[in-house]
């Protein structure tokens, strides 16, 4: 194309991290389940950033993130500035596989995680060095042992309108959506509340205190651990799935019975 649109450098720039990401996937697949082991143990010690980590994180950032977020992480047309987002935002975005983005779309999708927890922590450390931002909290704030009833009430007021009362998720505008919240790593729930990823509003500690956040996490844990007492929950989608069920399986089943009932016996 002869005309240089502002979008064209963006596009050429985006190919770069993708290629790197693809290579990294191959590499990570070789190292196996390191991630699974790392997530549970690594979070507690991430607050201490060693110089090595920062350096390692800088390299990873330059190789995987800089084409969209800029080499100084100050943002480009393709990606926002990361100055001041803190290690927690990095942990959420990269730790849930949302970053690096695979393709531009209404919002970043959850994908298989592409980095080990050490690498994520290293990038987090590097981003945290740029400017102060939300850090990985002490484990007691996302241990999920808080007041379930208070958490449920806060969840209904602050979260349910997008994520649904049972955490089943819901639609937003223009193809965006609030994801379902079943079986999410508590640190990621915490991270989402504090950093407000993408279109989610920020719930800073002045809005929901860390204890209140732990209560919300406790409630989510309660629903994860206690399946619906009434039986299968049909996706917790409410009356729509119930209506479809009664038409297809309820009435459908009974129509099959009526066919048997009125068929001549052999």
């Amino acid at each position: 194309m002869a005309i240089t649109s502002p979008a064209s450098p963006r596009r050429s720039g985006r190919r770069h991290p993708l290629a790197t990401a693809a290579l990294l996937i191959v590499g990570l697949l070789a190292t196996g389940g390191a991630y699974a082991l790392a997530t549970s143990t690594a979070t507690a010690e991430t607050t201490a950033h060693t110089a090595e980590m920062v350096e390692e994180g800088g390299k990873l950032f330059a190789a995987n993130c800089a084409s969209c977020h800029g080499i100084l992480a100050d943002g480009t047309a393709a990606g926002p500035s990361l100055i001041g987002v803190g290690a927690l935002a990095v942990d959420f975005q990269v730790g849930t596989g949302r970053m690096p983005m695979a393709a531009s779309g209404p919002q970043a999708e959850v994908k298989p995680v592409q980095f080990s927890q050490e690498q994520i922590d290293a990038m987090g450390a590097w981003v945290a060095e740029l400017a102060p931002g939300p850090a990985i909290p002490a484990e007691r704030y996302f241990a999920g042992d808080g007041d379930v009833a208070n958490g449920a009430e806060l969840f209904r007021i602050n979260c349910a309108m997008c994520h649904n009362v049972a955490g089943a998720g819901g639609a937003l505008t223009e193809g965006k959506y609030a994801p379902g919240l079943a079986n999410i790593d508590p640190i990621h729930v915490y991270g989402a509340m504090v950093t407000g990823p993408q279109n989610m509003p920020v719930f800073s500690d002045m809005n929901l205190t860390p204890e209140e956040k732990n209560d919300v996490i406790s409630y989510l844990r309660y629903i994860d651990e206690n399946p619906s007492v009434g039986g299968f929950d049909l996706g917790s989608l409410g009356p729509v799935s119930e209506g479809l069920f009664i038409w297809i399986f309820g009435l459908g089943g009974l129509v099959a019975v009526t066919v048997w009932l009125t068929a001549k016996s052999n």
């Binding site: 997008c162 649904n164 009356p239 729509v240 119930e242 479809l244 009664i246």
Partner: peptide, 8 residues
């Protein structure tokens, strides 16, 4: 709640 619907 997201997904606020009446019965069918």
């Amino acid at each position: 709640s997201a997904g606020t619907q009446p019965d069918w």
